[in-house]
Design a protein around this nucleic acid. Structure first.
Length: 672
DNA sequence: GAGCACTGC
């Protein structure tokens, strides 16, 4: 028999094993899952939220003798809460047989056989163990969300399957799956597909008859209509796109509801409490978005015991991240803010764009978790049909510098070759390689060098990693650790229009004339000097975001530990620039990581980026905004470039020309 | 003088 024939026969054998098991009730699912697992290398499980796939299937695998199982989740909270639930179901202590690992929190031990992890954690493990050899079974959950990390995990897992034929099995789980895509992605393996029945209650979906111009107005009307016409109890969840929309909708609902109530009371109702409550129930409005304080978020989630009806106005944080009890009605505006691909490199732009059908289903599903519900879509059925079925995979619109470094650290010399569900444009990878080369992570043959390996070791952006490594050489790593930590977190300055004056006054003492980097460092170092139990109060007094600072502190501790593990030899350190101030040395380190993001100050404070021919402005939130004198010359570096009404640079600092010359990766030379 | 959807190591 020829080789070709043998290959063909093997292929046929695989095809025959492939099976499709449709809509299994839960009691059948158990048997079928174990059969599928026994006969295939890859199992795709499709099932809505609540079908028990995440909690039940890994336990079944445990019961039939798999001894090292991992289940990945895109989000921390999910990994933690699922692990806790499974432990409760089995009556075992968290961290013994079953545990979880998320950043800053490892609840596993040597006896742990089933671990729930975020996919970022698994990718980090893959750097030291690219074939994931410590696991015999890997579950990848929420694959339909197509997050950057999940897509990369799927690529790495497929590679491990190929390298470890026979000793590894994979289960991909999702709510609604592009089955064909996943089937062809895993076509070289024995594959089973399992569909499990969800436990969602039926949801009636209503469309608007004619398109609306202003969906915020439409959402307000819909919300009030539901309140007055639909049965009580049952809370309302309204999906809008951002803080501004949510706040104005909240104002409008409150206003109109109050007006209507006083109109009713004046004209129809005697002032009797009883009659009052039988004719209409009170309505309370709660905003919900990520930037809110945890206290305010909790208020929106607190059950109201049917004393009034809640209307929660949320961003897509309520789509996946936060589950709100008591929701019976969903209003969906059909839009969300999404990152859009930009022709310009390293430029973020958010735009309000139509959601996908999958997202619309997800939003509607929020109405049927506890009882039959209703979903009111503020768009026509025609418009729904025109929506794309699946969301744009994140990998197609993301910056790949970090991911490329990680893949190379796993030993892939050519990350282009990793098989992925959707391949990013070649330019994205090429750009990533170009960046890595220029900041010194690659040698001239484009292979990862010692510095690059070190950079991948830290959970930081490659540019920050580069700055951190430079700071070891220049003997200022302790302050750089703090700077890296605070630069890795979201904004610490809490903006609110009412308290602007007093907030600016409170921030004044932190401000550094060099720019935002040292201002932030000043804030963080002051925060660290405050006793722990006084920190929350201190943040309140200074209008600072406690959550961000606490996260920065966690990162700071993690980075310090990692740095200690590394034990850099003294040959790594130099005595260069010893006579300079620490600030100057820190500046040099930042330039070593971020010189690609440098800007020349031209006449009249016109700013031009040096790597892309682009004129930019300093964002009004920067301490250097309007602080450059009209005759000032020189250079700046920035941490972020964002496109809103025009290109803005955010988190900006002044740098010296000689720093660019000496730490700019040989990209600069003096004009003759 | 403008405005930051959401995750993650």
């Amino acid at each position: 028999m020829t080789e070709k024939n043998m290959a063909q026969q093997n292929n046929n054998k695989r095809k025959r094993i492939w099976s499709l098991i449709k809509n299994l009730p839960a009691y059948h699912a158990r048997k079928s899952f174990l059969q599928a697992l026994a006969s295939s290398e890859v199992v795709l499980v499709v099932g809505e939220t609540g079908c028990g796939k995440t909690t039940q299937l890994p336990q079944q695998a445990l019961d039939v003798g798999y001894r090292s199982i991992v289940t990945t989740q895109p989000r921390r909270v999910a990994a933690i809460s699922v692990a806790e639930r499974v432990c409760l179901e089995r009556g075992v202590t968290l961290g013994s047989q079953i545990g979880y690992v998320v950043r800053f929190d490892d609840k596993t031990s040597s006896e742990t056989q089933l671990r729930y992890v975020t996919d970022g954690v698994l990718l980090r493990e893959a750097i030291t163990d690219p074939d994931l050899s410590r696991y015999d079974l890997i579950f990848v959950d929420e694959a339909h969300e197509r997050s950057l990390q999940t897509d990369i995990v799927l690529g790495v897992v497929k590679r491990a399957l190929t390298n470890r034929r026979g000793s590894l099995k994979v289960v991909v789980m999702s709510a609604f799956l592009d089955t064909d895509k996943f089937r062809s992605f895993f076509s070289s393996f024995d594959l089973s597909i399992l569909e499990m029945e969800g436990r969602l209650y039926p949801i009636d979906i209503f469309y608007i008859k004619t398109p609306v111009e202003d969906y915020v107005e439409a959402a307000v009307v819909a919300c009030l209509q539901i309140h007055f016409e639909e049965s009580f109890p049952g809370d309302i969840l309204v999906f809008l796109t951002g803080q501004e929309e949510i706040e104005s909708a909240a104002r409008m609902i409150k206003e109109r509801f109050d007006n209507y109530c006083s109109y009713l009371e004046k004209n129809f109702l005697p002032c009797s409490e009883n009659k009052h409550t039988t004719l209409y129930h009170p309505l309370r409005v709660y905003p919900l978005f990520a930037a809110m304080s945890p206290d305010a978020q909790r208020a929106a989630l607190k059950p109201c015991r049917n004393q009034f009806r809640k209307a929660i106005l949320a961003t897509n944080i309520a789509e996946t991240s936060i589950t709100i009890p008591g929701i019976k009605y969903v209003v969906d505006c059909g839009f969300s803010k999404q990152r859009v691909v930009s022709s310009m490199k390293c430029l973020d732009a958010l735009r309000v764009s139509p959601i996908s059908q999958a997202q619309a289903l997800q939003r509607a599903g929020r109405a049927g978790r506890e009882c039959p519900g209703k979903c009111f879509r503020l768009y026509t059925k025609d418009d729904f049909d025109k929506l794309s079925i699946h969301p744009v995979p994140e990998i197609l619109v993301s910056d790949l510098v970090s991911v490329t470094l990680q893949l190379m650290a796993m030993g892939m010399e050519n990350p282009f070759k990793l098989e992925l569900l959707d391949n990013p444009r070649t330019e994205s990878f090429q750009y990533a390689l170009e960046v890595l080369l220029s900041i010194g992570a690659l040698d001239s043959s484009m292979k990862l060098n010692a510095i690059g390996k070190q950079m991948a070791f830290f959970p930081l952006s490659p540019m920050l990693s580069r700055s951190l490594l430079e700071s070891i050489t220049l003997n200022c790593s302790s302050s750089m650790l703090a700077l890296c930590s605070i630069l890795s977190t979201e904004s610490v300055f809490q903006l609110s229009s009412q308290i602007r004056e007093s907030a600016f006054q409170a921030w004044n003492k932190f401000i550094s004339s060099l720019g935002d980097h040292f201002t932030l460092l000043q804030v963080f170092q002051s925060y660290l000097s405050i006793p722990e139990h006084e920190r929350i109060q201190w943040c309140k007094e200074h209008y600072l975001n406690y959550r961000s600072l606490a996260t920065a502190n966690n990162i700071y501790c993690q980075l310090s530990q990692l740095l200690q593990q590394q034990k850099y030899s003294s040959s790594f350190m130099s005595h260069l620039y010893e006579e300079e101030s620490e600030q100057d040395r820190l500046g040099r380190c930042l330039v070593a990581g971020f010189f690609r993001q440098s800007v020349r100050i031209g006449s009249n404070c016109q700013l031009y980026t040096l790597f892309e021919p682009l004129q930019v402005d300093i964002h009004p939130s920067s301490v250097l905004h309007r602080r450059l004198s009209s005759k000032e010359e020189g250079y700046l570096i920035y941490h972020e470039l964002i496109w809103t009404t025009k290109p803005y640079i955010r988190t900006v600092m002044r740098v010296k020309e000689e720093w660019l010359l000496q730490h700019g990766g040989n990209c600069f030379q003096l004009e003759s």
